[in-house]
Amino acid sequence: MIAKLKELLRESLGAPADGEAGGGHDLRLATAALLLEMARADRDETEQERRAAGAVLARHFALEQGAAEALLARADSSLEHTVSLYEFTRVLNDTLSPEERREVVRLVAEVAASDGVFDKHEQHLLSKLADLLHLRRAEYATIRASVLRSTDALD
């Protein structure tokens, strides 16, 4: 019975079955969770940030907007049941190249800046994610500066 419950939970959260490697589906869920966590970083998830997270997902993974919204809903559920971002960053570290991980950090920064404000909580989370994804400080700084320039977000 516990095995069935675990399997149901695994399916609902999009986690791989025992022995499976993280596939594209898990990669999308992990990315969506990080985008959503950034939208909440300043303790004020705005509709603009939520829409930006959906748009980033749709664009990056070539999803229809409805599919991106469904993925965000699943990520929301996953975040409720987790105590750490490590489980999401682990999937990305195990699956993506360094260049692809830099792109994920750029996408997360884009969500942070989407409301025109890049506050200290968002900066801290972005720095933490960059560390968890094994980016060098210089890479993080370059990504952050690039996103700030492109969106004219305030500090």
Rank of each mutant, 00 (worst) to 15 (best):
A138W: 00
A153T: 02
L27H: 13
A21C: 06
H81E: 08
R40L: 05
T151Y: 02
L96W: 10
L72S: 12
S78P: 03
R43S: 15
T142C: 02
E99C: 02
S150Y: 02
V108I: 10
E110C: 09
N93H: 11
T151E: 07
V104D: 05
H124G: 15
L135K: 11
L154Y: 02
S127M: 10
H25E: 09
Y86T: 05
L29W: 00
L72E: 14
D155H: 03
M38K: 07
D115R: 09
D115M: 12
Q123D: 12
L35C: 07
L71N: 13
T46G: 12
A32E: 05
V108T: 14
L29K: 03
L148Q: 13
A3P: 02
L72F: 05
E103K: 02
A30K: 00
A41T: 06
V83A: 12
E45C: 04
L35Q: 03
S12V: 03
R28N: 14
L34V: 03
A153V: 01
L125Y: 02
V111G: 10
D18M: 03
E11D: 08
D26Y: 11
G66T: 06
L27C: 12
G14A: 13
L96V: 05
L57A: 10
A113V: 10
E99G: 00
R106G: 15
A153R: 04
T46Y: 03
L135P: 02
R74K: 06
Q65E: 13
I2P: 01
D131Y: 03
L129V: 04
R102Q: 14
R102W: 04
R50F: 06
L5T: 09
H25S: 12
R136T: 01
L96H: 05
R101M: 09
L29F: 01
F118P: 15
G14H: 10
K120T: 15
V105I: 15
R50Y: 08
A32T: 07
E49G: 05
E122W: 01
D152F: 01
H134G: 08
R10Q: 11
D42C: 11
G22P: 13
T82E: 08
A109K: 09
E87C: 02
R101V: 09
D44S: 13
L132Q: 06
L9C: 14
S146N: 09
H25M: 03
H25V: 10
A112E: 09
A39M: 03
R106W: 00
L92H: 07
E20N: 08
G14N: 10
R101E: 12
A15Y: 04
Q123F: 07
E99K: 04
A68N: 07
R136C: 00
D155F: 03
I143V: 14
G22D: 12
L79V: 14
K6L: 05
E11Y: 09
L126I: 11
